[in-house]
Simulated scan of single mutants.
Amino acid sequence: MSVIETADAEGGGSLHQRILSNISEKILSGAWAPGHRIPFEHELTTEYNCSRMTVNKALSQLAKAGLIERRRRSGSFVRRPQSQAAVLEIQDIRLEVEALGLSYRYERVARHKRRSSAEDRSLLELDAVGSVLALECRHFAGKRPFAHEQRLINLAAVPEAIDEEFLAIAPGPWLIGRVPWSEAEHRIRAVAADRHIAAALDIEAGAPCLVVERRTWSAEHPVTHVRFTYAAESHTLVARFRPSQG
Results as ranks from 00 to 15, higher is better:
M1H: 04
S2L: 09
S2M: 09
V3Y: 03
G11R: 15
G13I: 10
S14E: 14
S14L: 15
S14N: 06
H16G: 09
H16Q: 12
H16F: 14
I19Y: 01
S21L: 11
I23A: 02
S29H: 01
S29F: 01
A31Y: 05
P34D: 00
I38C: 04
F40P: 08
E43K: 07
L44V: 07
L44H: 06
L44S: 06
T45H: 02
E47W: 14
Y48M: 13
T54W: 00
V55C: 02
N56I: 05
K57E: 05
L59T: 05
S60H: 10
S60T: 06
L62R: 03
A63R: 08
K64G: 03
A65F: 04
I68T: 01
I68Y: 00
I68W: 00
E69F: 10
R70T: 09
R71D: 00
F77N: 08
V78W: 00
R79M: 01
S83D: 12
Q84L: 11
A86T: 04
A86R: 10
A86Y: 08
E89R: 12
R94S: 15
E98D: 06
E98S: 13
L100V: 06
G101L: 04
S103E: 13
S103C: 07
Y104S: 07
R105A: 12
Y106D: 09
R111N: 04
R111A: 09
S117N: 01
S117E: 02
D120F: 01
S122N: 12
G130W: 00
S131G: 02
V132F: 03
A134I: 13
L135K: 13
E136D: 15
C137H: 15
R138W: 15
A141E: 00
K143I: 12
H148R: 14
Q150G: 10
L152F: 05
I153A: 03
I153W: 07
A157E: 03
E160I: 14
A161D: 08
E165L: 12
A170Q: 08
P173T: 11
W174C: 06
L175H: 05
V179H: 00
V179I: 08
W181I: 07
R189L: 13
A190C: 11
V191Q: 15
A193L: 13
A193K: 11
A193T: 12
R195S: 15
R195V: 13
H196I: 15
I197M: 05
I197T: 15
A198C: 13
A199C: 09
A199I: 09
L201D: 06
L201C: 05
E204H: 12
A205L: 12
G206S: 10
G206A: 09
A207M: 06
L210V: 10
R214N: 10
R214C: 06
R214M: 12
T224F: 08
V226C: 13
V226T: 14
T229E: 08
Y230K: 05
A231M: 04
H235G: 00
H235C: 03
T236W: 11
L237P: 04
L237A: 03
F241M: 05
P243D: 01
G246L: 11
